[in-house]
Amino acid sequence: MDANTIIADIKKRKLLPVYLLHGEEPYYIDLVSDSIEAQVLDEAQKGFDQTILYGKDTDFVTIVNAAKRYPMMSDFQVIIVKEAQHLKWKDDGLLLQYLENPMKSTVLVLAHKYAKFDKRKKLYKVAERAGAVLESAKLYDDKVAPWITGFLKNEGRQIHPQAAAMMGEYLGNDLSKVVNELEKLMLNVPAEREINAQDVEQHIGISKDFNVFELNTALAKRDTVKAFQIVNYFAANPRTNPIPVVLGAMGGYFIKVLKYHYLADKSPQTVAKELGVHPFFTREYEVAARNYNRQKTFAIVHHLRMYDLKSKGVNALNVPHGELLKELVYKILY
Results as ranks from 00 to 15, higher is better:
G322C: 06
L96Q: 12
A111K: 09
A272L: 06
A3G: 01
I195L: 07
L304P: 03
V329G: 00
L20H: 09
P320F: 00
Y253I: 00
A288P: 08
Q77V: 09
V257I: 13
M306C: 02
K143Q: 15
K326W: 00
N232E: 09
P17D: 11
A272Q: 04
G322P: 05
Q97D: 14
G252K: 07
V329T: 15
L182F: 03
A67L: 07
L95Y: 07
D75K: 14
A145T: 09
P102Y: 01
N315Y: 13
I79Y: 06
G248M: 02
L94Q: 10
P102F: 05
L182P: 07
L99N: 10
L15F: 02
K56H: 10
A130T: 06
L134A: 09
G276C: 04
E183H: 14
K273R: 15
P238F: 04
V40C: 04
T62P: 00
A197W: 01
L187Y: 09
W89G: 04
K14V: 10
G205A: 06
Y54Q: 08
L258T: 10
A111S: 15
N101L: 06
Q202Y: 00
F234I: 03
D49I: 05
P190K: 01
L187C: 14
F60I: 09
G313P: 05
F117D: 05
A288E: 05
K68G: 12
